[in-house]
Simulated assay, not measured.
Amino acid sequence: MTLFGNFSDSSLNLLPRDGTVNYYGKIIDREDANRFYQKLFENIEWKNDEAVIFGRKILTKRKVAWYGDEGFEYTYSKTTKTALPWTEELLILKKTVEEETGEKFNSCLLNLYHSGDEGMAYHSDAEKDLKKNGAIASVSLGAERKFSFKHKVTGEKVELVLEHGSLLVMKDETQSYWLHRLPPTRKVTMSRINLTFRTIDERQ
């Protein structure tokens, strides 16, 4: 297992094989990150996430929201969401991320974790709605949390800590070969907002 500390060399690929993950560190200063966190917490149309497991619909404690250039539909965990129009704060963050990465995005999935008790199990973002091998840019606001990758074949693991105001980018074949998760922890009592800027494949 490789555990990366807090650093910001965006040219370094954190994965040893089969994909690309770059960590940019803090791209938003603390004061602005605090402001964005508060605005998003108050203004985003948060809803408990839904998933269908063994034919039963369950609601998670974690809350989510889905925004985009138009009313894109996005299906995961056997549920479909329709994108809401961008808010002012989301457009500013989208522009910031696009300038940092040189990528273009047309949608954003947001997650609100109320404390360290809430997390996300291992999964990959390889839904058919998304551009294949496209970049996914993850912005973290609020509590610092550990983030883990695991290779689907070899079981290799890579972990790092996502800082308040930081940017992580997953691209190329990462979703095909790697799983990722946000492990729960009782050490964190503060809440965290995660924004994942994505590209819906409009040709479908």
Rank of each mutant, 00 (worst) to 15 (best):
K94H: 02
E31A: 13
R35P: 11
V169R: 09
A51K: 14
S8H: 12
E156H: 02
L109V: 01
K150R: 14
R35A: 15
F54D: 05
F7Y: 13
P183D: 10
Y113D: 02
E99Y: 04
N43T: 06
N111W: 00
D117F: 03
S8V: 03
R35F: 05
T101F: 01
K152E: 00
S176L: 08
V161G: 03
E42L: 09
K132R: 14
R145P: 11
V161I: 14
S166C: 08
G19R: 00
T189A: 15
L90R: 03
Y122D: 01
S140D: 06
G68S: 10
L93A: 02
R186P: 09
H164P: 04
E73G: 10
I136G: 05
P85T: 10
K171F: 09
E100S: 11
E118A: 05
L84F: 04
K128G: 02
Y37T: 08
K187T: 12
E163R: 10
E98F: 01
K132C: 01
L90S: 09
T79L: 13
L84P: 03
D172C: 00
G25P: 03
E89S: 12
G134S: 04
L182W: 07
D117R: 09
Q175D: 02
P184K: 14
D9P: 11
K150V: 02
A83M: 08
E100W: 06
A65K: 09
I28P: 10
E163G: 05
V97D: 09
K132F: 01
A65D: 08
W46Y: 10
G19K: 00
T174S: 01
G25K: 09
D29P: 04
A51H: 13
K81N: 13
H164N: 13
L130N: 04
K95V: 02
R30C: 11
I58F: 15
L168D: 00
N106Q: 02
F7C: 06
E103V: 12
E31H: 08
V153Y: 01
Q38G: 07
N106G: 07
E88F: 06
G102L: 08
E70D: 07
D201K: 13
K104D: 14
